[in-house]
């Protein structure tokens, strides 16, 4: 299967490219990037073709694309790929506005193209095991969840709102919201957030806590702060503490680690668990081969984005807000 990558703006493009190069049966057939220098560099590094114009990549013989452009450009790139009938794996968040997200979903539906959103944590083995326990009734009914998805200031375009759609809340709300929906099969009915610009000098949100009410009666909080400093042993985390009527479960997606004390590299945590990105990418390509619906849909991406947008609205207005998507008749 031939894959193209649209833009190396997001660092994950490099991870995906590396995985594709390693997998038998997958080929990195071309790269497009609106930053030609960056795209050429990546093409040289991964020994593939660089296309100066997106239509050139989309007219080539590729089967699917990975969209790893700046968040605000996802819509343009996904819509172009959908019109060219290419299957799509789109980096999270799906987009920066609900309008863009809906247009992307429509366009993929119209062109009968599969759109998958990159929520790799669904492929993290301890997280999968945790969900299996929940789904088998091991916790009884879920009452509450305490989540974290903390990280490090990613810098660059992530700090430019017109490109990223927002700071830490936009960057780090969507993963755990997606997990919560996936674990509970429930939807958010209320969002409250405290958001701060407390850690970095740039004027963009870098810290905060969001509290969510779900329609199954459970509540959850999430710390989405870019609060891991340079000397912290790792860049970030995904953790869930789940309280059920039948017990409690705590899962830490990246706890399968060694502690490394190096005179050259300092102190760090060295992860040895299964690679979730590989699992996600293979599930994407296998589903295409088998003509199956993607495991994580555009709708999942939209619901996660909606929570992040609600968090911003709540922090601005100082009250809990209700997602309104179901009140708008947007599904044709």
């Amino acid at each position: 299967m031939k894959l193209g990558i649209i833009s190396f703006a997001h660092g994950h493009a490099y991870s995906y490219a590396k995985i594709i190069k390693k997998q038998k049966g997958l080929e990195l057939a071309g790269i497009y990037d609106d930053d030609a220098a960056r795209g050429l560099g990546a093409a040289r590094h991964f020994k593939t073709t660089f296309y100066r114009h997106l239509p050139q990549l989309l007219q080539s013989t590729i089967d699917a694309v990975i969209v790893t452009s700046e968040n605000a450009k996802h819509a343009e790139h996904v819509i172009a790929a959908a019109r060219a009938k290419k299957s799509i794996l789109c980096e999270k968040p799906i987009a920066t506005t609900l309008k863009d997200a809906k247009e992307m979903i429509f366009c993929c539906e119209e062109n009968n193209v599969s759109l998958k959103i990159a929520f790799p944590v669904r492929y993290n083995t301890p997280v999968k095991r945790a969900r299996a326990i929940v789904k088998s009734g091991g916790l009884g009914r879920i009452l509450a969840v305490k989540g974290t998805n903390r990280g490090t200031n990613p810098g660059g375009w992530f700090l430019k709102k017109e490109l990223s759609g927002g700071g830490a809340a936009m960057d780090h709300t969507v993963h755990v919201v997606d997990l919560l929906r996936w674990f509970m099969g429930a939807e958010i009915k209320g969002v409250y957030a405290e958001i701060g610009n407390l850690l970095i000098n740039e004027a963009i949100d870098d810290s905060g806590i969001v509290t969510m009410d779900f329609d199954n009666g459970a509540f959850a909080t999430l710390d989405f702060s870019w609060s891991r400093n340079n000397n912290y042993p790792t860049w970030g985390d995904v953790t869930l503490e789940i309280i059920g009527t039948g017990g409690t479960l705590s899962v830490n997606a990246f706890d399968q680690k060694l502690e490394l004390y190096s005179d050259t590299d300092g102190i760090s945590w060295n992860f040895w668990g299964d690679d979730m990105n590989t699992a996600m990418l293979l599930d994407f390509t296998n589903a295409i081969k088998k003509g199956q619906k993607p495991a994580i849909t555009g709708h999942d991406g939209l619901k996660a984005l909606e929570a992040a947008l609600c968090a911003y609205e709540s922090a601005e207005r100082g009250v809990p807000v209700t997602p309104r998507i179901f009140q708008i008749d947007w599904v044709k």
């Binding site: 509450a144 305490k146 405290e194 407390l198 806590i209 509290t211 909080t221 309280i243 409690t248």
Partner: peptide
């Protein structure tokens, strides 16, 4: 059992999240 999650916003801007559990 009991369980509570509390968010505090301080006048200084500091954000705090507290977990209390009897679960």
């Amino acid at each position: 059992i009991d369980y509570a999650l509390v968010t505090l916003r301080f006048q200084s801007g500091v954000i705090a999240h507290l977990e209390g559990t009897w679960a």
